[in-house]
Design a protein around this nucleic acid. Structure first.
Length: 510
RNA sequence: GGUCCAUUCGUCUAUCGGUUAGGACGCAAGAUUUUCAUUCUUGAAAGAGGAGUUCGACUCUCCUAUGGACUACCA
């Protein structure tokens, strides 16, 4: 009963992994770690037509960025290597034949053209063509042809496929860890292709079941789009006689578009302005797609928000580290209905992580942006500036706008702020303030605040007028943190310089 | 069309027969503030519809509606 937990993430390298796929990988990973089991990465590249170069590397890098560790599989090896299905192609034919011999499958010699014609014909008659018990003995299959003819056709190189012989009118009873008990009548199903002689490759269904069995997978956690093929998979385990070691299944709810209907797709992101992929992607044909990483998201925030899309801990906690997720995760708290992805909430998650970063961490992330803006400062200063303003930022990329005046004097002065404060007595008061500041030796935040505060009180000036005029001089706009944060950061010399500049160069409004 | 799955505030969700149906994002208002923000407080906002079962249903059953997935020699 208590067998080792072994789960697999089995993407097919047909393009960049999208966030739904990352979530599937994440849930597999959390489940494995929660139960002290193994996480396996298997690449299902049995479709040579749709293979996209670079996709596998992209998948591996995405998982790495997210902190999803692979115990066994492509890139790390393991006792069941190889883990790439294209490198396992010899093993599948044997199993396909085994099924034919046992009477669970048969050879079919139809060509694609013939099948297309049959579909069209059925459509014209207002019906849908299904390759199943109603036609398999009328079409060119090993069920209708003589044994000799079948052998002859194979020998002379006719193309063939192996199809599963779906039983007629039998109810398959299945259990899903998320959805509970599900029943389907096999008469509504069709005879799926399991193996193709044309490229000597199995289809998903065969490769999947054989590999899950060989790799001793205990739990199959995958997207809901696989639920309709679950009966076939159950029957395949039975056909092979592997039902005793059959894995348990859990079908995850889909990730839906933010607006409208349907599941999340690449184009939604382009349209709505948020990424659908973890990492920036460039296809071999030169098409590109935005990535969370490049858009300034922290991997921890991305993982956190993904984890909560379709799962919740049952408590009111929303911020989780990977370790906390591992401890809290369970499949029975995964919801059944599809989850609509909401970009606003994603932003909020990132802001939460932003607010909790140390100055050191922020400095490291902020330095490249400073350099790009031509600013060379110590990590300490970069971190300090970021630290002062981090509560107002959602992304690391917001920081430059928020802190530029710490590093460079204003080049222009916001009109609104000028109209409001650069008039009347304010310029003269600023000149007075300049002398007050010039006389201060200890330019620390506390001391400056105390001295200037006392001066304002003594003179009976308006706090707002004075401070905002100073803000105009130092920041050039009506934004920023407390003024003494600014004065202490830029220092006395720079402070006086900026005041002198505005005093001599900016004409008061009248 | 067929099969399967789903359905609580705009969104993510809590509730596992008895609650003023809770939280979060977003939104609105107020407070704080030298600016902009932050922060805090408050507010608006939900059980798709209809039948049952039950003393009692958001919760169980059925029907309807709606949404979704699948229906390839793709995964």
């Amino acid at each position: 009963m208590s067998r080792e937990v072994r789960v697999r993430f089995a993407p097919s390298p047909t393009g960049p992994l999208h966030m739904g796929g990352v979530r599937t990988a994440l849930y597999n990973y959390l489940f494995a770690r929660r139960h002290g089991g193994k996480m396996i990465l298997r690449i299902e590249d049995t479709d040579s037509q749709r293979f996209v170069p670079g996709a596998e590397e992209y998948i591996i890098e995405s998982l790495k960025w997210c902190g999803i560790e692979i115990d066994e599989g492509v890139g790390v090896g393991g006792p069941h290597a190889p883990y790439r299905q294209s490198e396992r192609k010899e093993i599948y034919l044997k199993y396909a034949k085994q099924l034919v011999e046992a009477g669970w499958a048969y050879y079919a010699f139809d060509t694609s053209e013939e099948l297309d014609a049959l579909r069209k014909e059925a459509e014209a008659a207002g019906q849908t063509f299904a390759y199943n018990y109603t036609v398999r003995e009328k079409l060119p299959t090993s069920l209708s042809l003589s044994k000799e003819e079948v052998e002859q056709r194979i020998a002379r190189g006719d193309i063939w496929v192996v199809r599963f012989k779906m039983p007629e009118n039998e109810v398959v009873e299945m259990d899903d860890l998320i959805r509970g008990h599900v029943k389907v009548n096999t008469s509504t199903l069709d005879d799926k292709v399991l193996y193709k002689s044309a490229d000597e490759l199995p289809t998903y269904h065969l490769a999947n079941i054989v590999d899950d069995h060989l790799m001793e997978i205990s739990h199959v956690i995958r997207g809901e789009e696989w639920l309709p093929s679950l009966p076939l998979h159950y029957l395949l385990y039975r056909a092979f006689g592997w039902q005793d070691s059959q894995p348990q299944f859990a079908h995850l709810p889909l990730l839906l578009k933010p607006t409208g209907g349907g599941k999340l797709s690449k184009r939604d992101g382009d349209k709505m302005g948020f990424p659908v992929f973890p990492l920036f992607w460039t296809s071999p044909t030169g098409e590109t797609a935005k990535g969370y990483r490049e858009d300034g998201y922290f991997a921890e925030a991305f993982v956190n928000l993904l984890a909560l899309l379709g799962w919740n801990p049952g408590t009111e906690q929303e911020i989780f580290s990977m370790q906390e997720l591992i401890e809290a995760f369970s499949l029975d708290r995964v919801s059944k209905a599809g989850a609509r992805f909401q970009p606003d909430k994603a932003k909020w998650f990132n802001a939460q992580y932003m607010h909790h970063k140390s100055n050191e961490e922020l400095a490291e992330l902020f330095q490249p942006i400073l350099k790009a803006n031509g600013v060379e400062v110590s990590d300490e200063l970069a971190g300090k500036a970021a630290g002062i303003m981090k509560e107002r930022a959602s992304f690391i990329t917001d920081l430059w706008d928020l802190t530029s005046y710490f590093f460079v004097a204003p080049e222009q002065y916001e009109e609104k702020q000028m109209k409001k404060y650069w008039k009347g007595e304010n310029p003269a008061r600023l000149a007075e303030l300049r002398e007050v500041l010039a006389a201060i030796d200890d330019f620390s935040l506390e001391n400056t605040e105390a001295v200037v505060g006392a001066w304002i009180q003594e003179k009976g000036y308006g706090m707002g007028q004075i401070m905002n005029t100073l803000r105009l001089a130092l920041v050039g706009a009506g934004k920023g943190p407390g003024m003494y944060d600014v004065t202490a950061f830029i220092g006395k010399e720079e402070c006086l310089k900026r005041i002198d500049y505005i005093l001599t160069n900016l004409k008061p409004i009248e």
